[in-house]
Design a protein around this nucleic acid. Structure first.
Lengths: 129, 129
DNA sequence: GTCGGTTTTGACAATGGTTTTCATTTTGCC
DNA sequence: GGCAAAATGAAAACCATTGTCAAAACCGAC
């Protein structure tokens, strides 16, 4: 459980934002790697278990992963149309989450915050809903 | 798009927390309603579009719905151990999300915020990871 | 080098929630 | 009643994810 995991991790580190498992698989195959989809999922799972990648679900139920750059905690502003991602820091949110948790006596509080929207480009590029 | 929707909405209002679509379907059938799974999904979708029910995804990708009691938008504080859920309002977060979106020119900004932690009960009840 | 056993891998099948399809039924309206 | 539009539901299609299982890679021991 290492060579493949490392390869997947590498792909993730080369990537900007979040990527789906299938996406990663496709890219790896395109890069010439001989890897199976199953293995990608397994790698992703163990990496996530080890806390080396972040995993979250998009609105349509797909899981997406990102290499964890644990030093700085930040969130993402994702364009729901083109997928363009901006990293945003949100000290206020961090504080709020902690406060809320503490308020109810919760410990080991973590939080997931994702902001979705339509980016300027896509907005001007038109659109029906 | 009304009789069924109303029926589904009624079930939801009778329920305490979140229920899955399949769950609702099963219950309605048990209650003697002649309704199809498809219709339940359709009803849920339109109710959700109209903002009359809240919809969210569990960690395993299942969609769950709940009658919207408060017209106010709120988030959840979930115990990662026992699943106990507390509803929390977060005006600050709402404002922050909007501000962040606006900052980058994003429109139609929505956000997902979930706070996880270990609730007091579970914390005292102990544990291994 | 090779033997034996353990781990990893990946093609493929299976799962399961959700969505689509499409023919039938119901509804609203004249 | 008659007709068209909307709603319905059974079954099929989807599709991301997970399970299966036999083959391949790995590894320490001989």
């Amino acid at each position: 459980m290492s060579k493949s995991s490392d390869a997947v991790h590498a792909i993730l580190r080369q990537s900007e934002g979040f990527r789906s498992a299938q996406d990663i698989f496709t890219k790896m195959r395109a890069d010439g790697a001989k890897i199976g989809l199953t293995t990608v999922y397994r790698a992703l799972q163990s990496l996530s278990d080890d806390g080396r990648v972040d995993m979250l679900r998009t609105d349509d139920g797909e899981s997406v992963y990102r290499a964890c750059e644990s030093d700085v905690h930040h969130h993402h502003l994702v364009c729901r149309r083109c997928g363009h991602t901006v990293e945003v820091a949100g000290p206020d949110v961090e504080r709020w989450a902690e406060a809320v948790g503490a308020d109810y006596g919760f410990t080991e509080v973590t939080h997931t915050v994702e902001v979705f929207g339509t980016c300027p480009d896509c907005a001007s590029a038109a659109g029906s809903r």
